[in-house]
Design a binder for these strands. Structure first.
Length: 183
DNA sequence: TGCACGATGAAC
DNA sequence: TTCATCGTGCAC
């Protein structure tokens, strides 16, 4: 497996989001190496995107989002679940890709469809916020042989408050994959 | 210092 | 459809 470099994330967010599909998220802990294939994502474009946390501007919470690309942005939602994002584009933009579903590949027990559930299954919480994803124990890698699939584009989930941004088709998933959070 | 509200998921 | 549960951002 080839680990993705910083430059991979330092590009257009909607493009990075689609290219993350089919890649593997690797998290090495004392308990073992957990691997899941990314099958569903959402792109959050930056401060102008009303659905994005970065629309609030630079705050303590969005600091990671506005930071350099290739870092993990993890936050608590509804006081209950954690969500894992990958920061994209250059420092100051405030863009990221939300990982919404994984297909289990190694050492993963529990459901991985849905952003909250995959964090639960991998044991990812706010302690991972700000962690560098271009590292040896927490990273995303390209499989040896790229598989063929088509990408479905849909509006993002749970962002109806974001006016016209709610209609943008910035949710991407692998067509036909059984581990999608919802059709 | 208080309060309304989620990039969700599970139960009813 | 309802609700758990708490950090965040913004109004007083």
């Amino acid at each position: 497996m080839q680990r993705l470099s910083r430059s991979f994330y330092d590009r257009d967010t909607a493009l990075v989001a689609q290219e993350l599909l089919g890649k593997s998220l690797v998290y090495r802990t004392a308990a073992g190496e957990r691997i899941g294939k990314i099958v569903e994502v959402e792109a959050y474009l930056g401060a102008h995107d009303l659905a994005s946390h970065s629309a609030k501007g630079l705050t303590a919470r969005t600091q990671t989002m506005f930071g350099p690309p290739g870092y993990a942005y993890v936050y608590l939602i509804y006081g209950v679940h954690h969500c894992l994002n990958v920061v994209t584009e250059r420092e100051g933009v405030g863009a990221a890709v939300l990982i919404r579903a994984l297909e289990p590949e190694k050492n993963i027990s529990g459901h991985t469809q849905g952003p909250g559930r995959l964090c639960r299954a991998l044991d990812i919480d706010r302690r991972m916020n700000g962690r560098d994803l271009v590292s040896d124990d927490f990273f995303i890698a390209a499989p040896p042989a790229a598989e063929e699939f088509s990408i479905v584009k849909r509006p993002r989930i749970g962002v109806d408050y974001a006016k016209h941004w709610a209609r943008r088709r910035l949710r991407f998933y692998i067509r036909g994959n059984p581990f999608i959070s919802r059709p």
